[in-house]
Deep mutational scan, measured.
Amino acid sequence: IDAAQIVDEALEQGITLFVVNNRLQYETSRDSIPTELLNKWKQHKQELIDFLNQLD
């Protein structure tokens, strides 16, 4: 699994991931984030931050 897949998966569930001051953040209108997704974010945090920083 790679960062792009995780970002896409989040988007499919209505969650936008982004980076502020090198910290992973998210925006969503959902009430809660699925635990499975949160765990993936934690496991791949640095990859996600690097990936999202490249997009900007």
Rank of each mutant, 00 (worst) to 15 (best):
I1E: 07
I1L: 11
I1G: 08
D2W: 11
A3Q: 03
A3Y: 09
A3T: 05
A3E: 03
A3K: 02
A4S: 11
A4D: 03
Q5C: 08
Q5M: 11
Q5R: 12
Q5A: 13
V7C: 05
V7W: 07
V7F: 09
V7R: 04
D8F: 15
D8T: 14
D8G: 14
E9T: 04
L11V: 06
L11C: 14
E12Q: 14
E12L: 11
E12H: 11
E12I: 10
Q13W: 15
Q13A: 14
Q13R: 10
Q13E: 08
G14C: 08
G14P: 00
G14F: 05
I15T: 02
T16E: 07
T16M: 11
T16R: 15
T16P: 02
T16L: 14
L17S: 11
L17A: 01
L17P: 00
L17G: 00
F18W: 06
F18Y: 13
F18C: 14
F18L: 12
V19A: 05
V19F: 03
V19L: 07
V19I: 06
V19R: 01
V19M: 03
V20H: 12
V20L: 09
V20A: 08
V20P: 01
V20M: 09
N21D: 14
N21V: 04
N21T: 04
N21R: 05
N21Q: 08
N22L: 05
N22V: 05
N22H: 07
N22F: 05
N22R: 04
R23Y: 09
L24Y: 01
Q25E: 13
Q25A: 12
Q25M: 15
Q25Y: 15
Y26F: 10
Y26T: 03
E27T: 13
E27R: 14
T28V: 04
T28P: 09
S29N: 12
S29I: 08
S29E: 12
S29R: 10
S29M: 11
S29Q: 11
S29D: 12
R30N: 09
R30Q: 07
R30Y: 06
R30C: 07
R30M: 12
R30L: 13
D31F: 06
D31Y: 04
D31V: 10
D31P: 11
D31E: 11
S32D: 08
S32C: 13
S32E: 11
S32W: 14
I33W: 03
I33K: 01
P34K: 04
P34F: 02
P34L: 03
P34C: 03
P34H: 03
T35Y: 10
T35D: 12
E36D: 10
L37I: 05
L37Y: 05
L38T: 07
L38K: 06
L38P: 02
L38Y: 07
L38M: 10
N39M: 12
N39H: 09
K40F: 09
K40C: 12
K40Y: 08
W41N: 00
W41R: 00
W41H: 02
K42A: 14
K42C: 15
K42I: 14
K42L: 14
K42H: 13
Q43G: 06
Q43W: 07
Q43A: 12
Q43L: 13
H44T: 04
H44W: 12
H44P: 00
H44K: 04
H44R: 05
H44Y: 15
K45I: 14
K45N: 14
K45L: 15
K45V: 13
K45S: 14
Q46C: 08
Q46A: 09
Q46G: 06
E47S: 08
L48M: 03
I49C: 04
I49Q: 02
I49Y: 03
I49E: 04
D50A: 13
D50R: 10
D50I: 10
F51S: 01
L52N: 00
N53G: 07
N53W: 06
N53K: 13
Q54I: 09
L55G: 09
L55P: 07
L55E: 06
L55W: 08
D56W: 09
D56M: 13
D56T: 15
D56L: 11
D56R: 12
